[in-house]
Nucleic acid binder design. Structure first.
Lengths: 237, 237
DNA sequence: ATAATATATTTGTACTACAAATAGTATAAA
DNA sequence: TTTATACTATTTGTAGTACAAATATATTAT
């Protein structure tokens, strides 16, 4: 099956990129299969090698293809998050995007409860305990690193590779948020503390240790109230 | 601040791409700011225009920059999922990747429960009812489209733009899974039916209508048992 | 002051050229 | 015959030149 061009697309490079992706899909190519070499592709598609290579360069970046001298172009399994990762630069993101990422994190972190308790074992519990105790020893207000260390461990326990990657990738956004929106976060924390509803990592840990899944689910929701409140305040306008 | 090159990277294009991304980050550029034009960049970085343009082409694809004749290169807010979307082609993905995506979907769909009930209103309920009734009228086994229609609506109700996009993007993987792994799914469904634990969309709907959040949470978990069982079977080996 | 025109700049595309890597082939040596 | 070595051809990676198309800016005309 040949290469088709959709002339709607913006530039030639866009068209060629789309055409090659389409070719891979229609021919159901799988990792290990190869694409025609650059010369063949230029004549086949009818563009300059320059344009072709820009399109190939994009696919190479995404990990869909791999090129090697005198071997040609080989399809490979892309890693799903490369593109996503490159794009997560907090300064480039609007507030609404950051809010959407917060929503996503809340959903994930509540949703991973089942997986967390499923994979939980005594080893993990003692690792969590170590983290909680070491932080408790220091201070009332946790540093960002401490905050992160605890939550990372939760993701790790789920054993889901994607959850772990995802968390790692969006982490800088939360660092940024902490630095930029703390004037929003602080009052919420004050209020929760006053109402005795502030859920600390220690509280979460105790529920985990007691294997109280439903209790944990309630608690993690409250623990993330800082973000929910922020979302609320920002979106009610 | 100038452009730095990490000579570790694979090709020159990789180095230039990294260098430009790094430049954007270090200088805290925001959407609307502009990059030096191509000529300036080539001399600054010390590569041919060809190589430079391959790197720029990648960033353009990700939506990080936008180029216009006689205006130069302008930073813009990328859409977070463009890269991810291009890479979701089921034939290119290994089974373990598909399993990871299933895990992610289960976590998301359980996790969105709170958001779902928060945004729930009578309108949504009647929309869901319409869907459920129309499907019930037809047959016992739902088509893929019907399956999708119901779940899409759940995502829509959450009002989270990212959840909706994410669901749309990974959907083809589940179509693919349905077609390829139905020999795994069918027995699970049979078993659940025999044990009277099969949760239909109607069951889910009734819980939603009754605003029984905790009941729903249990139920959606069971409803997704087809996937959990598949994951279990595949990973125990 | 406004409209029309001209000019300069910048990106988009094409083409040529050659270096570097490497798969495949031919040759030499055991 | 087998193995090691050298050679050849192919293919990607990089550089450079050229020009068309778009458009911002400057200039001129009304």
């Amino acid at each position: 099956m040949k290469f088709k061009i959709d002339y709607q697309s913006n530039t030639l490079v866009d068209q060629v990129e789309e055409s090659i992706l389409d070719y891979i899909k229609r021919n159901k190519l799988v990792p290990g299969d190869s694409l025609p070499n650059e010369m063949a592709l230029t004549t086949e598609i009818g563009v300059s090698r320059n344009v072709l290579r820009e399109a190939l360069s994009r696919l190479r970046m995404l990990g869909i293809i791999q090129s090697r001298t005198n071997r040609g172009i080989i399809i490979q399994e892309p890693s799903l998050f490369t593109g996503f990762e490159k794009v997560i630069e907090p300064h480039l993101l609007s507030e609404s995007t950051i809010i959407e990422l917060m929503k996503l994190r809340i959903v994930l972190e509540i949703g991973l409860t089942d997986l967390l308790f499923k994979h939980l074992n005594d080893n993990y519990i003692s690792e969590l305990e170590r983290i909680v105790l070491s932080h408790e020893a220091v201070n009332y207000n946790l540093t960002l690193e401490q905050e992160t260390e605890f939550h990372n461990k939760l993701y790790q326990i789920t054993g889901s590779e994607f959850l772990i990657s995802f968390q790692k990738i969006i982490h800088p956004v939360f660092v940024y948020a902490k630095n930029n929106y703390d004037n929003y976060f602080a009052p919420t924390n004050e209020r929760l503390r006053a109402e005795k509803k502030l859920i600390t990592h220690k509280d979460l840990f105790n529920l985990i240790k007691a294997r109280d899944m439903e209790g944990y689910r309630m608690a993690i929701k409250l623990h993330l109230a800082t973000y929910s409140d922020f979302i609320e305040k920002k979106t009610e306008k």
